[in-house]
């Protein structure tokens, strides 16, 4: 039975595309979100005037459901009524049809994910930055360190566990991406935005290949469980070190 699904897999042209897209997606989106979230958290923690407004606005996307975000950005990218192409039209540039262009669709969706989840990492990192003791950076400043040295040599090492946790959480969660792609492109054009979650959904519910869908769900679970187990062990070690 399992062999049958292996044969199906080899004959399935979508699998390489879905696998690669998922990989590109995760490998691009997570580092960018981490960098932006960390930079914004550090800058926001150093800024006092208007900080409450900045923080509220920056964390806003993390509170919205994925369906809402998919719907919003589908409108944003629309050729006729989307804000992006309308603004380009003001400068007499005919904007691309973002979600219908095989080369632009995946980057456009990555952009949406960055918009959505940078907010989440910003919140996590902000909590980490605010938890840093003021004494060490004060002492370094007395010793003549400048702001960049303090951030690079004192803040970042102290934030390392928080950063690692945030990155692992996002790595595991980025593979979930479904609603946004389902609403914006449904995996198209052709297979250019096909990803793991969406493809399993389609195998089940538009191709009605229940066994094959289960096979892929199992494989995805196995791959992800490596990361999940690693995350759990890492957390466990941190807890034990914190308790000691």
């Amino acid at each position: 039975m399992g062999l049958k699904h292996l044969h199906e897999m080899l004959a399935d042209p979508v699998i390489p595309a879905a696998g690669l897209n998922t990989l590109y997606f995760v490998l691009f989106v997570v580092p960018v979100e981490t960098f932006l979230g960390l930079a914004l958290a550090i800058v926001a923690s150093k800024t006092h005037r208007g900080s409450r407004l900045y923080r509220t606005l920056l964390m806003l996307p993390a509170l919205l459901p994925g369906v809402a975000i998919g719907a919003i950005w589908r409108l944003m990218y629309d050729y006729n009524m989307g804000l992006i192409d309308q603004v380009l039209a003001l400068f007499h540039i005919s904007g691309p049809t973002w979600l219908a262009d095989p080369h632009l669709a995946l980057p456009a969706i990555m952009m949406v994910d960055i918009w959505h989840w940078t907010a989440f990492l910003f919140l996590i990192f902000l909590a980490g930055v605010e938890g840093l003791p003021a004494e060490t950076s004060g002492a370094a400043r007395v010793d003549g360190a400048n702001e960049f040295q303090i951030i690079a040599h004192i803040w970042l090492p102290a934030l390392w566990p928080t950063i690692l946790t945030g990155v692992m959480l996002r790595l595991i969660d980025a593979v979930r991406v479904f609603e946004e792609i389902y609403l914006m492109t449904s995996g198209g054009p052709e297979t250019s935005t096909q990803v793991a979650s969406l493809y399993i959904y389609q195998v089940y519910f538009t191709q009605f290949r229940t066994g094959y869908g289960g096979f892929w769900a199992l494989i995805l679970a196995l791959i992800l469980s490596i990361f999940v187990v690693f995350y759990l062990l890492m957390n466990n070690r941190q807890l034990r070190e914190a308790n000691r």
Binding site: I172, V175, R176, F178, A196, S197, I200, Y201, Y204, T210, G213, G214, A217, L218, L220, A221, L224, S225, V228, V229, Y231, L232
Partner: peptide
């Protein structure tokens, strides 16, 4: 924790059936 962290798509088939 494990169930919570895996993507929900994995449980969709069994739940549907």
């Amino acid at each position: 924790l494990f169930v919570r962290m895996l993507p929900p798509i994995i449980f969709v088939g069994p739940l549907y059936l």
